[in-house]
Protein backbone atom coordinates (compact mmCIF):
# COMPACT_ATOMS: atom_id res chain seq x y z
CA UNK A 1 0.00 0.00 0.00
CA UNK A 2 1.23 3.46 -0.89
CA UNK A 3 1.58 6.16 1.73
CA UNK A 4 2.99 9.65 2.14
CA UNK A 5 5.86 10.40 4.46
CA UNK A 6 3.82 12.46 6.96
CA UNK A 7 1.45 9.64 7.77
CA UNK A 8 4.00 6.88 7.93
CA UNK A 9 4.95 7.33 11.59
CA UNK A 10 1.52 6.89 13.23
CA UNK A 11 0.67 4.12 10.82
CA UNK A 12 3.81 2.27 11.69
CA UNK A 13 3.01 2.59 15.40
CA UNK A 14 -0.47 1.22 14.80
CA UNK A 15 1.00 -1.42 12.57
CA UNK A 16 3.53 -2.53 15.14
CA UNK A 17 0.77 -2.63 17.72
CA UNK A 18 -1.26 -4.76 15.33
CA UNK A 19 1.73 -6.99 14.70
CA UNK A 20 2.15 -7.67 18.40
CA UNK A 21 -1.56 -7.89 19.08
CA UNK A 22 -1.25 -11.28 20.72
CA UNK A 23 1.44 -10.05 23.10
CA UNK A 24 -0.61 -6.96 23.92
CA UNK A 25 -3.67 -9.10 24.54
CA UNK A 26 -1.68 -11.26 26.90
CA UNK A 27 -0.53 -8.13 28.67
CA UNK A 28 -4.05 -6.81 29.08
CA UNK A 29 -5.12 -8.60 32.27
CA UNK A 30 -1.97 -7.43 34.05
CA UNK A 31 -2.39 -3.87 32.82
CA UNK A 32 -6.06 -3.87 33.83
CA UNK A 33 -5.12 -5.23 37.24
CA UNK A 34 -2.60 -2.50 37.92
CA UNK A 35 -4.86 0.24 36.60
CA UNK A 36 -7.80 -0.85 38.74
CA UNK A 37 -6.00 -1.80 41.92
CA UNK A 38 -2.86 0.33 41.89
CA UNK A 39 -3.22 3.44 39.77
CA UNK A 40 -6.91 4.34 39.91
CA UNK A 41 -7.05 4.41 43.74
CA UNK A 42 -3.79 6.36 43.97
CA UNK A 43 -5.32 9.85 44.11
CA UNK A 44 -7.32 8.54 47.07
CA UNK A 45 -4.12 8.65 49.11
CA UNK A 46 -5.00 12.32 49.48
CA UNK A 47 -7.29 11.20 52.31
CA UNK A 48 -4.16 10.89 54.47
CA UNK A 49 -3.88 14.66 54.53
CA UNK A 50 -7.50 15.43 55.35
CA UNK A 51 -9.96 15.33 58.20
CA UNK A 52 -12.31 13.15 56.21
CA UNK A 53 -16.10 13.35 56.27
CA UNK A 54 -18.68 11.63 54.05
CA UNK A 55 -20.39 14.88 53.04
CA UNK A 56 -17.39 16.53 51.45
CA UNK A 57 -15.75 13.37 50.18
CA UNK A 58 -12.06 12.69 49.75
CA UNK A 59 -11.10 15.87 47.96
CA UNK A 60 -13.54 18.24 49.66
CA UNK A 61 -12.71 17.38 53.25
CA UNK A 62 -10.59 19.88 55.21
CA UNK A 63 -6.84 19.69 54.63
CA UNK A 64 -4.89 19.02 57.82
CA UNK A 65 -1.32 18.66 56.57
CA UNK A 66 0.70 15.99 58.33
CA UNK A 67 -1.52 15.69 61.41
CA UNK A 68 -2.55 12.15 60.53
CA UNK A 69 1.08 11.08 60.64
CA UNK A 70 1.66 12.47 64.15
CA UNK A 71 0.53 9.41 66.05
CA UNK A 72 3.44 7.35 64.77
CA UNK A 73 5.83 9.79 66.43
CA UNK A 74 3.68 10.41 69.52
CA UNK A 75 3.50 6.72 70.33
CA UNK A 76 7.28 6.77 70.70
CA UNK A 77 7.48 3.62 68.60
CA UNK A 78 8.30 4.81 65.10
CA UNK A 79 11.95 3.88 65.39
CA UNK A 80 11.35 0.48 67.00
CA UNK A 81 8.68 -0.42 64.45
CA UNK A 82 10.67 0.73 61.45
CA UNK A 83 13.76 -1.09 62.71
CA UNK A 84 11.89 -4.34 63.39
CA UNK A 85 10.09 -4.23 60.06
CA UNK A 86 13.25 -3.61 58.07
CA UNK A 87 15.36 -6.16 59.95
CA UNK A 88 12.75 -8.87 59.49
CA UNK A 89 12.47 -8.11 55.80
CA UNK A 90 16.23 -8.06 55.33
CA UNK A 91 16.38 -11.46 57.01
CA UNK A 92 13.51 -12.74 54.87
CA UNK A 93 15.03 -11.43 51.64
CA UNK A 94 18.63 -12.50 52.22
CA UNK A 95 17.98 -15.87 53.83
CA UNK A 96 14.98 -16.48 51.60
CA UNK A 97 16.90 -16.00 48.38
CA UNK A 98 19.87 -18.03 49.55
CA UNK A 99 17.64 -20.93 50.56
CA UNK A 100 15.57 -20.68 47.41
CA UNK A 101 18.66 -20.77 45.19
CA UNK A 102 20.09 -23.67 47.17
CA UNK A 103 16.82 -25.55 46.93
CA UNK A 104 16.49 -24.90 43.20
CA UNK A 105 20.03 -26.18 42.59
CA UNK A 106 19.40 -29.26 44.70
CA UNK A 107 16.20 -29.97 42.81
CA UNK A 108 18.08 -29.57 39.57
CA UNK A 109 20.70 -32.06 40.68
CA UNK A 110 18.13 -34.74 41.48
CA UNK A 111 18.16 -37.23 38.64
CA UNK A 112 15.25 -39.44 39.67
CA UNK A 113 12.28 -37.86 37.97
CA UNK A 114 9.61 -39.08 40.40
CA UNK A 115 11.60 -38.17 43.47
CA UNK A 116 12.14 -34.71 42.00
CA UNK A 117 8.41 -34.18 41.47
CA UNK A 118 7.53 -35.47 44.93
CA UNK A 119 10.14 -33.30 46.64
CA UNK A 120 8.90 -30.27 44.77
CA UNK A 121 5.30 -30.90 45.82
CA UNK A 122 6.18 -31.51 49.44
CA UNK A 123 8.18 -28.30 49.61
CA UNK A 124 5.36 -26.41 47.93
CA UNK A 125 2.70 -27.44 50.44
CA UNK A 126 3.45 -25.10 53.36
CA UNK A 127 2.78 -22.15 51.07
CA UNK A 128 -0.87 -23.14 50.92
CA UNK A 129 -1.39 -23.44 54.67
CA UNK A 130 -3.29 -20.48 56.08
CA UNK A 131 -1.41 -18.33 58.58
CA UNK A 132 -4.34 -18.68 60.96
CA UNK A 133 -3.66 -22.39 61.02
CA UNK A 134 0.05 -21.77 61.44
CA UNK A 135 -0.75 -19.62 64.48
CA UNK A 136 -2.75 -22.48 65.98
CA UNK A 137 -0.04 -25.02 65.21
CA UNK A 138 2.57 -22.73 66.78
CA UNK A 139 0.47 -22.31 69.93
CA UNK A 140 0.10 -26.05 70.24
CA UNK A 141 3.83 -26.51 69.82
CA UNK A 142 5.07 -23.70 72.03
CA UNK A 143 2.58 -23.01 74.83
CA UNK A 144 3.66 -23.52 78.41
CA UNK A 145 0.85 -25.64 79.84
CA UNK A 146 0.09 -28.14 77.10
CA UNK A 147 2.51 -27.40 74.25
CA UNK A 148 4.21 -30.31 72.47
CA UNK A 149 7.73 -29.00 73.04
CA UNK A 150 7.20 -28.39 76.75
CA UNK A 151 5.44 -31.73 77.17
CA UNK A 152 8.51 -33.38 75.68
CA UNK A 153 10.84 -31.39 77.95
CA UNK A 154 8.80 -32.31 81.02
CA UNK A 155 8.56 -35.96 79.99
CA UNK A 156 12.34 -36.12 79.74
CA UNK A 157 12.78 -34.59 83.18
CA UNK A 158 13.44 -30.96 82.26
CA UNK A 159 11.79 -27.70 83.28
CA UNK A 160 9.28 -26.23 80.85
CA UNK A 161 10.29 -23.08 78.98
CA UNK A 162 8.09 -19.97 78.87
CA UNK A 163 8.41 -19.53 75.13
CA UNK A 164 5.56 -17.02 74.89
CA UNK A 165 7.25 -14.69 77.34
CA UNK A 166 10.78 -14.92 75.95
CA UNK A 167 11.05 -12.19 73.36
CA UNK A 168 14.56 -13.21 72.32
CA UNK A 169 13.39 -16.49 70.81
CA UNK A 170 10.82 -15.02 68.46
CA UNK A 171 12.96 -13.54 65.72
CA UNK A 172 14.25 -17.09 65.14
CA UNK A 173 10.78 -18.63 65.30
CA UNK A 174 9.27 -16.08 62.94
CA UNK A 175 12.10 -16.25 60.41
CA UNK A 176 12.03 -20.05 60.53
CA UNK A 177 8.27 -20.17 59.94
CA UNK A 178 8.52 -17.68 57.10
CA UNK A 179 11.29 -19.75 55.46
CA UNK A 180 9.39 -22.97 55.96
CA UNK A 181 6.36 -21.41 54.33
CA UNK A 182 7.88 -19.55 51.41
CA UNK A 183 11.09 -21.29 50.35
CA UNK A 184 9.52 -24.07 48.29
CA UNK A 185 7.31 -21.65 46.46
CA UNK A 186 10.04 -19.07 45.92
CA UNK A 187 12.48 -21.63 44.54
CA UNK A 188 10.29 -22.12 41.48
CA UNK A 189 11.51 -18.94 39.82
CA UNK A 190 15.13 -19.97 40.29
CA UNK A 191 14.40 -23.49 39.18
CA UNK A 192 12.83 -22.12 36.01
CA UNK A 193 15.85 -19.87 35.48
CA UNK A 194 18.16 -22.90 35.78
CA UNK A 195 16.04 -24.76 33.22
CA UNK A 196 16.49 -21.79 30.90
CA UNK A 197 20.29 -21.85 30.99
CA UNK A 198 21.77 -22.58 27.59
CA UNK A 199 22.48 -26.35 27.46
CA UNK A 200 25.65 -25.82 25.48
CA UNK A 201 27.25 -24.19 28.53
CA UNK A 202 26.78 -27.42 30.46
CA UNK A 203 28.13 -29.44 27.55
CA UNK A 204 31.21 -27.22 27.36
CA UNK A 205 31.72 -27.55 31.11
CA UNK A 206 31.41 -31.33 30.86
CA UNK A 207 34.00 -31.45 28.04
CA UNK A 208 36.33 -29.31 30.15
CA UNK A 209 35.94 -31.93 32.91
CA UNK A 210 34.06 -29.73 35.40
CA UNK A 211 32.90 -31.45 38.60
CA UNK A 212 29.30 -31.05 39.83
CA UNK A 213 30.42 -28.38 42.27
CA UNK A 214 32.35 -26.51 39.54
CA UNK A 215 29.32 -26.69 37.26
CA UNK A 216 27.25 -25.03 40.00
CA UNK A 217 29.91 -22.49 40.88
CA UNK A 218 30.89 -21.43 37.36
CA UNK A 219 27.78 -22.01 35.25
CA UNK A 220 24.59 -22.01 37.33
CA UNK A 221 25.30 -19.32 39.92
CA UNK A 222 26.52 -16.68 37.42
CA UNK A 223 23.48 -17.40 35.23
CA UNK A 224 21.15 -16.82 38.17
CA UNK A 225 22.62 -13.41 38.94
CA UNK A 226 20.19 -11.35 36.80
CA UNK A 227 17.18 -13.18 38.22
CA UNK A 228 18.50 -12.68 41.74
CA UNK A 229 18.98 -8.95 41.22
CA UNK A 230 15.56 -8.45 39.69
CA UNK A 231 13.87 -10.30 42.54
CA UNK A 232 15.94 -8.35 45.04
CA UNK A 233 14.90 -5.03 43.52
CA UNK A 234 11.26 -6.11 43.53
CA UNK A 235 11.37 -7.08 47.17
CA UNK A 236 12.98 -3.76 48.13
CA UNK A 237 9.69 -2.00 47.47
CA UNK A 238 7.98 -4.06 50.11
CA UNK A 239 10.64 -3.74 52.76
CA UNK A 240 8.45 -1.57 54.98
CA UNK A 241 5.49 -3.91 54.58
CA UNK A 242 5.45 -6.78 57.00
CA UNK A 243 3.73 -10.11 56.59
CA UNK A 244 0.83 -8.97 58.78
CA UNK A 245 -1.07 -12.24 58.83
CA UNK A 246 1.94 -14.23 59.96
CA UNK A 247 2.99 -11.83 62.72
CA UNK A 248 -0.54 -11.26 63.96
CA UNK A 249 -1.34 -14.94 64.15
CA UNK A 250 1.92 -15.89 65.82
CA UNK A 251 2.18 -13.03 68.30
CA UNK A 252 -1.23 -11.35 68.49
CA UNK A 253 -1.69 -9.18 71.55
CA UNK A 254 1.15 -10.72 73.51
CA UNK A 255 2.87 -7.53 74.63
CA UNK A 256 5.71 -9.45 76.26
CA UNK A 257 7.08 -10.16 72.79
CA UNK A 258 6.56 -6.74 71.19
CA UNK A 259 10.14 -5.56 71.67
CA UNK A 260 11.33 -8.03 69.05
CA UNK A 261 8.16 -8.79 67.09
CA UNK A 262 6.15 -5.62 66.67
CA UNK A 263 6.14 -4.39 63.09
CA UNK A 264 4.41 -1.38 61.58
CA UNK A 265 1.30 -3.26 60.48
CA UNK A 266 0.63 -5.02 63.78
CA UNK A 267 1.17 -1.87 65.84
CA UNK A 268 -1.05 0.22 63.60
CA UNK A 269 -3.73 -2.46 63.62
CA UNK A 270 -3.85 -2.34 67.41
CA UNK A 271 -3.85 1.45 67.44
CA UNK A 272 -6.60 2.24 64.98
CA UNK A 273 -8.71 -0.86 64.48
CA UNK A 274 -11.52 0.39 66.70
CA UNK A 275 -11.27 3.98 65.63
CA UNK A 276 -13.33 4.37 62.50
CA UNK A 277 -10.44 6.24 61.10
CA UNK A 278 -9.35 5.81 57.49
CA UNK A 279 -7.08 8.78 57.46
CA UNK A 280 -4.46 7.55 59.92
CA UNK A 281 -4.40 4.10 58.33
CA UNK A 282 -3.88 5.64 54.91
CA UNK A 283 -1.15 7.84 56.34
CA UNK A 284 0.73 4.75 57.49
CA UNK A 285 0.30 3.03 54.14
CA UNK A 286 1.61 6.10 52.40
CA UNK A 287 4.63 6.27 54.71
CA UNK A 288 5.44 2.63 53.91
CA UNK A 289 4.95 3.04 50.17
CA UNK A 290 7.00 6.22 49.88
CA UNK A 291 9.81 4.62 51.84
CA UNK A 292 9.63 1.53 49.60
CA UNK A 293 9.53 3.67 46.46
CA UNK A 294 12.60 5.62 47.53
CA UNK A 295 14.41 2.39 48.32
CA UNK A 296 13.62 0.81 44.94
CA UNK A 297 14.75 3.93 43.11
CA UNK A 298 18.00 4.11 45.09
CA UNK A 299 18.76 0.42 44.78
CA UNK A 300 18.01 0.49 41.07
CA UNK A 301 20.24 3.54 40.64
CA UNK A 302 23.08 1.77 42.40
CA UNK A 303 22.61 -1.37 40.33
CA UNK A 304 22.55 0.66 37.14
CA UNK A 305 25.81 2.36 38.10
CA UNK A 306 27.39 -1.04 38.66
CA UNK A 307 25.98 -2.90 35.68
CA UNK A 308 23.44 -1.33 33.41
CA UNK A 309 22.12 -4.68 32.17
CA UNK A 310 20.90 -5.74 35.57
CA UNK A 311 18.85 -2.65 36.38
CA UNK A 312 15.05 -2.73 36.17
CA UNK A 313 14.88 0.58 34.31
Amino acid sequence: MAGVATTRRPRSLLKSAWDSKVLLLMCLPAVAFFVVFAYAPMPGAWIAFTNFNYRDGIFGSPFVGLRNFEFLIKSGQLWLLTRNTILYNVAFIVLGNILQIALAIMLNEIRLRYFKKISQTVMFLPYFISVVLIGVIAFNLFNYDTGAINSLIVATGGDPVKIYSTAGLWPFIIVAVQMWQSTGYGSIVYFAAIMGIDKTLFEAAAIDGASAWQRIRYVILPSLKPTFIILLLFSMGGIMHGNFGLFWNLVGNNAQLFATTDIIETAVYRMVMTQNNFTTSTAVGLYQSIFGFALVMTANWIVRRMNKDYALF
Binding site: R67, N68, F69, E70, F71, K74, S75, G76, Q77, A267, R270, M271, V272, T274, Q275, N277, T279, T280
Partner: peptide, 10 residues
Protein backbone atom coordinates in the same frame (compact mmCIF):
# COMPACT_ATOMS: atom_id res chain seq x y z
CA UNK B 1 -7.30 11.34 66.96
CA UNK B 2 -3.53 10.95 66.73
CA UNK B 3 -3.14 11.11 70.50
CA UNK B 4 -5.79 8.43 70.97
CA UNK B 5 -4.05 6.16 68.47
CA UNK B 6 -0.71 6.73 70.20
CA UNK B 7 -2.29 6.04 73.61
CA UNK B 8 -3.79 2.88 72.15
CA UNK B 9 -0.28 1.73 71.25
CA UNK B 10 1.01 2.36 74.77
Amino acid sequence: ESTLAAMGAV
